[in-house]
Every structure is written in structure tokens, then in C-alpha cells.
Simulated assay, not measured.
Amino acid sequence: MMETIANPLKGRHFLTLADFSSEEIVQLIENAIDLKKMQKQGIAHPYLKGKTLGMIFEKSSTRTRVSFEVGMNQLGGHALFLSRNDIQLGRGETIPDTAKVLSRYVDGIMIRSHEHAGVEELAAHSAVPVINALTDDFHPCQALADLMTLYEVKGDLKGRKLAYIGDGNNMAHSLMIACAKLGVDCAIASPQGYEPKQEIINVATNIAQDTGAVLIITNDPKTAVEKADAVYTDVWTSMGWEEEEEVRLKTFQPYQVNTELMGYADKEAIFLHCLPAKRGQEVTAEVIDGPQSFVFDEVENRLHAQKALMVALMGD
């Protein structure tokens, strides 16, 4: 089965899904499903034997760190954890110098950071692929796993509808782009003043014009959820916005995903969340722990989607 895994993206960076064609994203999803089957069947798949991934973390993480480390191990490679405070980047070494140094040691760099511009600068000076594992503006690895999950459950993607309810954050941005690329209608419902960034809405809108996807930006969660195949939410207070938590709790209360709101979606709709979740805030326990919830399948798919990504970017 080793020869079934395609490698169309070798040497490229993975900063946002806007940089990849619909066909390339579909290929990544199909490869991820193949890798998942291999892992479930106990079939060894050491596509990255002898390879090393350097992982820079400027933000704390559970799923990202574990999935990338385990993924590299299953692929026969090695993952090296690099906290900002453990490397010279945290003491003033420049991003270009950091990129050039790491490029001499590792075969790929994964970074979980704040400013997206910093990740772009890292990629501009890196001789090896750079993977964006989260910035304040984008979370493409999560979106890739999300669309993989929707594909597994529904059997197809084009013409489906995903509704995202909550803060117009990095998750909303990446989902808009991912859906637009794959012909999935996407509705984003956020409180006034918390909508996605207009420049990213423009990017997703332009992509959707080519694929036929419908993009809706609204302040009404019921409008967004109507006839949706998947309902998605995220925490109301992302990392870095803790000082706004009290205000956000009041502002976002009408945007809670509960049984009543799920009732406006398709009767076979699934619930998705990138986690961690705060039950009783953005989602009720009844929904996230109920039969419509696929959040832990989604979590598992981070592993397989990222393995497919690493093989494509770093494999021989």
C-alpha cells in the first residue's frame, strides 16, 4: 500500500489553505483517510523515516503537540519540541536567523504562534517546509481535519453546508477558506463587532465564486444554522483575549449552540468543535456529549490529516 500515497506538495509551505488548489486539498484528505486505515489495521507506514520536524510553540497546546509528535513517530520520524523560552528566539534572535539555523538541522518546521506575519517571515527565510499550526488569523490544520471529518460522515462535500457560530476568529477564517475551496456552503454568525476580518471574507468570497460555494456572514445564528449539515463553534474567549471574558460572556450568550439551535439545522446534522470546549458557554453538554457530536472523531483526524500533510511536504 505504500505506493498509494501521493506527494504533490513536496517542499511547499502550509500557511493557509488559500495557497492550495481544491484538487490538492482533496488529495490531502484522501491521503489522510488512507493513512488512518493503515494505522487502524496496524500497517507500518514509515514515509518519513529519518526525518525530523522542529516544533516551535509560542502558545500552549494539547492536540497540536500530541498529534504532531505521535504523527511523526508513526511515520518513522522524530519530532523536536521547541518552546520559545528554550530557544534563542525568546531572547531576541531574529526570525530570519532562526529560520536559517533550523533549516540546517531539520526537514520541516511546525510553528504555533501569534502574529501571522511572523510565520510568513519564518517561511520566507526557511529552506524547509513551514507548517502553520495556528496563528491569531488562521488555523488551517484544524480546518483540514474538520473537512476530513465532514467528508467521512457525509460521504461527499460539494453542496453541503457548514454553519459556524461564534467569534469571527482564526477558526472562522480557516473554515471559510476551506469550505470555499471545496464547494461547501459556509455561514458565519457572529455578534456585531466580532465578525471575521473583511480582508479574509474577501479572499473566501473570491474563491467561492470559482467553486460555486455560498458564503453567508450574518449576526443571526438561526439564519446561519438553517438546513446546515454541520454546526460548528469555538470558545468565546480565545487565548490572548482573557481580559475581555466578562464582556464576551454577555455578548455571546445568544450564540450558544444548544438543542433549540441545532433544531434549525438538517435533522442529520453533526456538531463540530475544535476544542477545548467550555460546556455551558458556547455549547451545552447535551449537544457536545450527544449523538450528533463528532468532536472526538474530529480530534483523532487532526493526527491523520497532519500526517498526510507532513508526508506531502516532507516526504521523498
Rank of each mutant, 00 (worst) to 15 (best):
Lys158Met: 10
Gly159Ala: 04
Gly159Gln: 05
Arg160Ser: 11
Tyr164Arg: 11
Gly166Met: 03
Asp167Asn: 14
Asp167Glu: 10
Gly168Gln: 08
Gly168Asp: 07
Gly168Leu: 14
Asn169Cys: 01
Asn169His: 07
Asn170Pro: 10
Asn170Lys: 09
Asn170Cys: 07
Met171Gly: 10
Met171Glu: 04
Met171His: 03
Ala172Gly: 01
Ala172Met: 03
Ala172Tyr: 02
His173Pro: 01
His173Glu: 07
Ser174Pro: 07
Ser174Trp: 04
Leu175Gln: 05
Leu175Pro: 00
Leu175Asn: 02
Met176Asp: 05
Met176Gln: 09
Ile177Val: 13
Ala178Leu: 06
Ala178Asn: 03
Ala180Cys: 13
Leu182Val: 06
Val184Leu: 03
Val184Met: 01
Ala187Ser: 03
Ala187Gly: 05
Ala189Thr: 03
Ala189Asn: 02
Ser190His: 01
Gln192Val: 09
Gly193Arg: 03
Pro196Asp: 00
Pro196Glu: 12
Lys197His: 14
Gln198Arg: 14
Gln198Glu: 03
Glu199Trp: 14
Glu199Leu: 08
Ile200Glu: 01
Ile200Arg: 06
Ile200Val: 15
Ile201Ser: 11
Asn202Met: 15
Val203Ala: 09
Val203Ser: 13
Ala204Val: 02
Ala204Gly: 03
Thr205Ala: 15
Thr205Gln: 14
Thr205Ile: 03
Asn206His: 15
Ile207Arg: 06
Ile207Thr: 00
Ile207Gly: 01
Ile207Trp: 07
Ile207Tyr: 05
Ile207Ala: 09
Ala208Asp: 02
Ala208Leu: 12
Gln209Lys: 15
Gln209Val: 12
Gln209Pro: 04
Asp210Ser: 15
Thr211Cys: 11
Gly212Ser: 00
Ala213Gly: 07
Leu215Arg: 01
Thr218Ser: 08
Asp220Phe: 10
Thr223His: 15
Thr223Tyr: 01
Lys227Arg: 13
Lys227Ala: 15
Ala228Pro: 08
Ala228Gln: 07
Asp229Val: 05
Asp229Ile: 02
Ala230Lys: 00
Val231Asp: 05
Val231Cys: 06
Tyr232Val: 08
Thr233Pro: 03
Thr233Glu: 04
Asp234Thr: 09
Val235Trp: 02
Trp236Cys: 01
Thr237Glu: 08
Thr237Met: 11
Ser238Pro: 10
Ser238Tyr: 05
Ser238Val: 14
Met239Arg: 05
Gly240Arg: 10
Trp241Gly: 13
Glu243Met: 15
Glu243Ile: 13
Glu246Arg: 07
Val247His: 13
Val247Cys: 00
Arg248Ala: 10
Leu249His: 12
Leu249Thr: 10
Lys250Met: 15
Thr251Ser: 14
Phe252Arg: 01
Phe252Leu: 07
Gln253Ser: 14
Pro254Lys: 09
Tyr255Trp: 14
Gln256Thr: 10
Val257Met: 08
Val257Thr: 03
Val257Glu: 04
Asn258Glu: 06
Thr259Trp: 02
Glu260Gln: 15
Leu261Ser: 04
Gly263Lys: 09
Tyr264Asn: 12
Ala265His: 02
Ala265Met: 11
Ala265Cys: 02
Glu268Met: 13
Glu268Lys: 15
